[in-house]
């Protein structure tokens, strides 16, 4: 029981991170109908930006953790959005009216490029970051097993809830949200109505990258280990989350993220930690086989 509760807390934390990344996949898919293969690597870039900024702040003598976190969040979000913008501009926009395969391949090229760019410029070694906010509350103790929730975990879950609320407001209540949804429905008509479709698509990539940047900062703070390969696995898991929830559906992305996060921590704890990644891939294949539209997605009708 105690172990299950602990895994629930760990799973919710992990799921929040996956959910934040999954929103980037789902939004981009909604608007241009394509998977952003480089999204996982944009997340990885943000984690490296966070490591550098944390180190810089420590060198400058900033000792207040909340202040440092705030600065790192702002810096990472700004720079990572620039990366999101560049990904769209170089790998997607020139190929928007091309064959289906071409933008997929250019995006995979972008993913390989980003991974190796970070490996060359930042080094292939793992970057250790001193743990932050590792103090926490012990909820209860049963026998020798005590259930803990750390400040970092609380922060991740609360921040995710706040971001999700803000993001839902952005999409459902603001002018940009309406334009974004119009673009999803029909790009041509949106252009006829006088909206700048290129700008909306660019902003969508930037928002996706910004949310991934928050996830990157949180992971850097929570796990304290970053290397150039983290984007690959996190990207696949977040993508699985997006597919599980229904690609194109925002609540679906969050729900899918939570399910994948919970599944992973329970699998690692009760079954086998070595095969936890296989569990995610098996779920991905099963969902695509039996319910390709996901839990909350609408079935897709292919038009000629």
């Amino acid at each position: 029981m105690a172990q299950a509760l602990q895994q629930l807390i760990n799973g919710l934390t992990l799921g929040s991170v996956y959910g934040l990344i999954a929103i980037g996949y789902t939004m981009v898919y909604g608007i241009i109908g394509m998977i952003n293969f480089a999204h996982g690597d944009v997340y990885m870039v943000s984690a490296f930006i966070a490591v550098t900024t944390f180190t810089l702040l420590a060198a400058l003598g900033v000792s207040s953790v909340p202040l440092a976190l705030l600065v790192v969040l702002v810096v990472a979000v700004l720079f990572t959005s620039a990366y999101g913008w560049t990904v769209e501009r170089t790998a997607y926009r020139p190929l928007r009216n091309s064959t289906r395969l071409a933008p997929l391949i250019s995006a995979i090229g972008m993913s390989i490029f980003l991974q190796n760019m970070v490996q060359v410029t930042q080094g292939a070694r793992v970057k250790p970051v001193p743990p932050m906010l590792s103090d926490g509350i012990t909820l209860f103790t049963s026998g020798s097993y005590s259930v803990r929730i750390s400040s970092a975990q609380i922060l991740i879950i609360v921040l995710t809830v706040v971001l999700m609320a803000g993001f839902t407001w952005l999409i459902t209540r603001t002018a940009f949200g309406r334009q974004q949804r119009a673009c999803e429905q029909d790009r041509l008509v949106t252009a006829f109505l006088g909206y700048n479709v290129d700008r909306i698509i660019s902003l969508t990539f930037m928002i996706g990258a910004a949310l991934a940047a928050v996830a990157g900062v949180m992971v850097t703070m929570y796990y304290g280990v970053v290397d150039f390969y983290i984007g690959f696995v996190a990207g696949i898991k977040a993508f699985t989350a997006a597919v599980l929830g229904g690609v194109g559906s925002l609540p679906g992305a969050m729900l899918g993220g939570l399910i994948i996060g919970l599944l992973e921590s329970f699998w690692a704890s009760y079954l086998s930690p070595e095969y936890k990644d296989i569990g995610t891939f098996v779920i991905l294949i099963m969902v695509l086989m039996f319910r390709p539209s996901g839990l909350l997605g609408r079935p897709e009708v292919e038009k000629v």
């Binding site: 391949i105 250019s106 995979i108 090229g109 390989i112 490029f113 980003l114 190796n116 760019m117």
Partner: peptide, 9 residues
């Protein structure tokens, strides 16, 4: 690999 990725784009 860096050049591979670049060339692919």
């Amino acid at each position: 690999m860096l050049l591979f990725g670049f060339a692919m784009i």
